[in-house]
Design a binder for these strands. Structure first.
Lengths: 213, 213
DNA sequence: CTATTATATGACTCGTGGGTCAGTTACAGA
DNA sequence: TCTGTAACTGACCCACGAGTCATATAATAG
């Protein structure tokens, strides 16, 4: 054994983050049940035992993945949608572009698919995802729509349902990409999908002639 | 032991269907990995060994579930969308109403969620679902849109992307119902969602003034 | 009634992987 | 250099559940 290179190093600061990062990859690739702790440990560059220095259980690691990987990205979009000074069509175009960027630069899609797939077995996780991600996004979007309705920029209707109409195709695109493209389906071109959908929604949401203020 | 009531009966005709039915329930509740063959057997009223008289493996049962539970419903919607004589807005309203009925009267939503969740571990299953369900639905919808564009009833644009815009919110509604409603989120009112989304899409798809034929 | 066979049982095997822990190593402080 | 201890290892344990098979029973034919 060479004296110069230690077998391992003590790095208690950096470990948790590295483990979460490795776990994100493995969970995204295999799903919760099929992800093996040995593989997470290997990719994080530690032994399996080391995982238990920082996390209680496999489920605990899963929770950390969801919280750390996603929640930070939501604040940004939320803040953007809260801006009241921009005409709705422009606001929608901006928000959609931002969402598109987040999807393309993070593993958000994979995590979303993961949460949906495992929600039955981990209801608490579904609750976290709902409260900290989906619900906030939907509330921000509904809020913007409601204000736009009051200004007469958007036709009257349940703003929550309108928000569903806006967000739905994006979810479909993400799920398509994560689920069907890997098995040979033609890819869902997220960029043009978001753009065309946005323009269609702007047209579909435009107030009808003769609508009351 | 009483002579009058046999411990079990030979019912080789009815078994496979009963097993598939039971498996659908258990898979929908637990996901593939967490579903136990013992429980499927119990709900089907047989022993675990009997499952292997009719199916090779657990995966085999999963496949049978997907094929039997869903595929028959697709033909109907596909045929409806192929009708060329109806003005597009009416056609869309009819098709959406039909889809809504299928979702409400079958476990299609649960199976969809299941396939999405397990697609990484069972790519062949994702392929079956894509080829026999999603792709066909999308093709039927795109076809109707393309014909409507040629008749000048719908604004020009990539019909496949327009189909994504139409189908996306429905998927979102279904996933919402299967994922978040069980953990305390407000339900996604599928009926009104579909209706409002349909009207919005009809408005958003209407040809712009001055568009070429 | 008896023999035969298809159908069904349930105790069993065995691979797998989450979780444990006795021992090892890095490193800080004296 | 010599501890003390926090950080880390990896062989091990054991619960779990998919899949097997020797045995048992229902149905059927002769």
């Amino acid at each position: 054994m060479q004296a110069g290179s230690p077998k391992w190093r003590r790095r208690s600061e950096a470990r948790p983050g590295e483990i979460v990062q490795a776990a994100l990859e493995v969970f995204a690739e295999r799903g919760f049940a099929a992800a093996k702790l040995d593989e997470i440990a290997r990719r994080a560059g530690v032994s399996k035992g080391a995982l238990y220095l920082y996390f209680e259980t496999k489920e605990d690691i899963f929770r950390a993945v969801v919280r750390e990987a996603v929640v930070p990205n939501i604040d940004m979009v939320e803040a953007m949608l809260a801006q009241a000074t921009i005409p709705f069509p422009d606001l929608l175009r901006l928000a959609l572009a931002r969402i598109e960027t987040v999807i393309e630069t993070t593993r958000l899609g994979a995590v979303a698919k993961l949460v949906v797939g495992e929600s039955r077995n981990f209801p608490e996780l579904a609750r976290v995802w709902h409260d900290e991600v989906v619900s906030r996004m939907l509330a921000a979007m509904s809020g913007a729509l409601e204000r736009a309705q009051m200004r007469g920029e958007v036709r009257l209707g349940d703003p929550r349902l309108q928000a569903f109409s806006i967000m739905g195709p994006i979810l479909l695109g993400v799920i398509w990409q994560e689920t069907f493209t890997p098995v040979g389906a033609p890819p869902a071109p997220l960029k043009s999908l978001v753009r065309q959908h946005g323009e269609m929604m702007i047209a579909g949401l435009a107030p009808r002639v003769g609508d009351p203020q």
